[in-house]
């Protein structure tokens, strides 16, 4: 240790970090507290910082019954939609990008570089900047209000391909050579060597893409018109009637807690993979 340990230097980091943790937790804690009170208490501004007695009632009603004023759809159903969307995006992305990266790394064929660049440039085309034309194409393909419409346009992106390409480049050439001598063709090499070695990368990408998929906002907002297709992130927005006292805040906050719980659990439970995925997809 370079630094002398004074009382201040020992205590300061903890003070700063605890303050940081409080700031980070506070909004979520408030939402949790709100999810345990009744509408009247919240509307009168009497909520305070202690949890109330209505937790079970609120969660039950939110999950299985639905709010009265804005959407009749129970949030349980929305969560299912979100789950399906997140899984389809994560799994779909992994599959198509591991295949394309395998083709780009382990083959030489005409237009290989062209294919790589076609994929690469998509890094620069976030959905927000091409939103209406993409919507139009999806609608022309009759994919509005379908899981396919919700997910397929988000499945292709350079991130996964770049990540797998980067990882494949670190697999020693000799492993392919040994496999060739061991009579393994492309399928066997992929199945027996590349896939088992890629498991951590796959898991890391899965964590990141699951969060990405679960948290989608603009795209499902446009693509879903039916209540039954709504995702939870969209659902909550529709519960909040900005100018109005009609908002059932206790249910909105219950929904908020339910909406943030799954991805947060994924991050905390798979922290190592999450950090790996985050750092490597950005590199």
């Amino acid at each position: 240790m370079v630094e002398k340990r004074t009382f201040l230097s020992a205590i300061l980091p903890h003070v700063v970090l605890i303050l940081g943790v409080i700031v980070v937790f506070f909004p979520v804690y408030v939402a949790f507290v709100a999810s345990t009170w009744d509408a009247a208490t919240i509307a009168n501004g009497q909520m305070g910082l202690r949890p109330g007695p209505h937790m079970l009632e609120n969660y039950h009603r939110t999950l299985f019954v639905g709010t009265a004023s804005s959407t009749r759809e129970p949030v349980g159903n929305m969560m299912l939609n979100s789950l399906i969307m997140a899984l389809m995006i994560a799994v779909g992305k992994i599959i198509i990008s591991i295949f394309s990266a395998f083709a780009i790394v382990y083959y030489r064929f005409p237009f290989r570089m062209a294919a790589f660049w076609i994929i690469f440039v998509t890094l620069m085309l976030p959905v927000e900047v091409r939103i209406y034309p993409t919507y139009k194409i999806v609608s022309d393909l009759n994919m509005l209000d379908t899981y396919w419409g919700l997910t397929v346009p988000l499945i292709a992106s350079a991130t996964g391909t770049l990540l797998f390409r980067q990882f494949f480049m670190t697999i020693p050439d000799e492993l392919l050579e040994a496999s060739k001598i061991d009579a393994a063709g492309p399928f066997r090499f992929f199945k027996d060597t590349v896939l088992p070695l890629s498991m951590t990368t796959i898991a890391a990408l899965f964590v990141i893409q699951f969060i990405y998929g679960w948290n989608q906002y603009l795209w499902p907002l446009l693509i879903t018109t039916k209540d039954s297709m709504q995702t939870i992130v969209i659902g909550i927005k529709k519960m909040i009637v900005t100018q109005d006292a009609l908002t059932e805040w206790q249910l909105a906050m219950t929904t908020a807690v339910l909406a943030l719980l799954p991805p947060v659990i994924v991050v905390v439970a798979m922290q190592k993979l999450f950090v790996k995925g985050l750092v490597e997809t950005e590199k």
Binding site: L17, G20, V21, V24, F25, F26, P27, V28, V30, A31, A34, I211, W214, N215, Q216, Y217, V233, I234, I236, K237, I240, W249, A252, M253, A256, A259, L260, P263, V264, V266, V267, V268, Q271, F274, V275, L278
Partner: peptide
């Protein structure tokens, strides 16, 4: 501390908005 500080990444922007809006 690290674990306690990194999870908001997983919160959807819209949800983050709603949390702050409520406060």
């Amino acid at each position: 501390y690290k674990t306690l500080l990194i999870w908001p990444y997983a919160v959807a922007p819209a949800i983050a908005g709603v949390l702050w809006l409520f406060m």
